[in-house]
């Protein structure tokens, strides 16, 4: 399988690989300010060090030679030049920002939902839903309409130089046009709790034909042919179950799935429950109803996010984890 594009080893030292229609704008402006800063810093440090040595206190230099308190020409120069430079930078940054902010009319729309701690994507034209993987065609403007179901998140694709906060009860937009096929890293950059750093996702960019094929496959429901426990195994990662539930008995956020089926669990209210199919289904759809003692009540409901067959798949998968 194709690998995710690396960030550090791709591109240059100061920028990750550049793969959107405006990432080259970013790169030019970044390096413009970068080299300007390097030149000015060298000048400032150079003059400072030069003065430090030249005017070092010594037997022959015990009293300051001159007391100068101002020099109008010099002061006007070092106020005016920085002013002109920063106004130029401001304008350049604003111009590029406008391009990034206003999405083209013909952009292909995808709805994005941020939820502790995974991203889901829905294609309004076809009703297809995915979790953890955003698939889009190359070379076409894509517009994301984003919202959160709980706290603030922020949707960030370093290779495309785009980022936007995702806010509950509000829609925020972001658009991009990817220039090359491949798999790109998506991060959450607004702190959202325990698994914030694991709330990553992948942007998969395909050729337009492959994208259409992929969409057809999704519409047919390719998952129908997969055995239930394998479907569960796939969903375990795709739905972000893995960010809270381990498979090896270790505690991440919620209880581990290892050996859980058939076991007796002590609940927070003191009662006991046997883990069977009904209990598991209830815990997926109404997670707050029965809380296992010692764990926080933080899981969000998957009602409406998973089909019946998918819920069955997860239950069958848990049964295999002895």
């Amino acid at each position: 399988m194709e690998k995710v594009k690396p960030l550090l080893s791709d591109g240059t030292l100061w920028i990750p690989g550049s793969y959107s229609s405006f990432s080259s704008n970013y790169d030019s402006l970044f390096y413009f300010i970068f080299w300007l800063s390097v030149i000015f810093t060298i000048a400032i440090v150079g003059v400072t060090l030069y003065f430090s040595f030249k005017y070092k206190r010594s037997e022959s230099n015990l009293v300051a030679k001159k007391q100068i308190v101002h020099n109008n020409k010099l002061e006007i120069i070092w106020t005016a030049i920085p002013f002109v430079i920063v106004m130029f930078i401001f304008y350049w940054g604003f111009k590029d920002y406008l391009y990034m902010t206003v999405s083209p009319e013909n952009a292909y729309e995808v709805r994005v939902t941020g939820k502790k701690w995974f991203w889901t994507y829905e294609y309004p034209e076809t009703g297809v839903k995915t979790v953890g993987e955003l698939v889009v065609p190359v070379g076409r403007p894509i517009k994301l309409v984003m919202s959160s179901t709980d706290v603030l998140h922020s949707f960030y694709i370093p290779n495309l130089r785009v980022k936007r906060d995702v806010v509950p009860n509000k829609y925020s937009n972001l658009w991009f046009d990817v220039t090359q096929e491949g798999i790109y890293q998506i991060f959450c950059t607004e702190y959202c709790g325990d698994q914030h750093s694991n709330m990553d996702s992948k942007l998969i960019v395909k050729s337009y034909e492959d994208f259409l094929d992929w969409m057809e496959e999704q519409k047919r429901g390719a998952s129908k042919d997969v055995p239930l426990d394998l479907l569960g195994k796939k969903l375990y990662k795709e739905q972000g179950c893995n960010s809270c539930h381990s498979l090896d008995g270790s505690v991440v956020v919620g209880p581990s799935w290892k050996g859980i089926y058939g076991a007796q669990r002590l609940l927070a209210d003191g009662s006991e429950v046997k883990v069977d199919d009904n209990y598991l289904r209830e815990s997926i759809v109404y997670p707050a109803k029965k809380i296992v003692k010692g764990y926080p009540n933080i899981m969000a409901s998957y009602a409406g996010l998973l089909s019946d067959r998918e819920i069955n798949g997860i239950i069958e998968y848990i049964k295999t984890l002895k």
């Binding site: 405006f22 800063s37 400032i44 940054g93 604003f94 922020s154 980022k163 950059t189």
Partner: peptide
């Protein structure tokens, strides 16, 4: 000085989008 120049980078709208957070 380094803090100030990187502040200029962050104050620039199109650059802050990538560098924010």
């Amino acid at each position: 000085t380094v803090g100030g120049f990187t502040g200029v980078v962050l104050g620039t709208l199109s650059l802050d989008i990538h560098l924010h957070d």
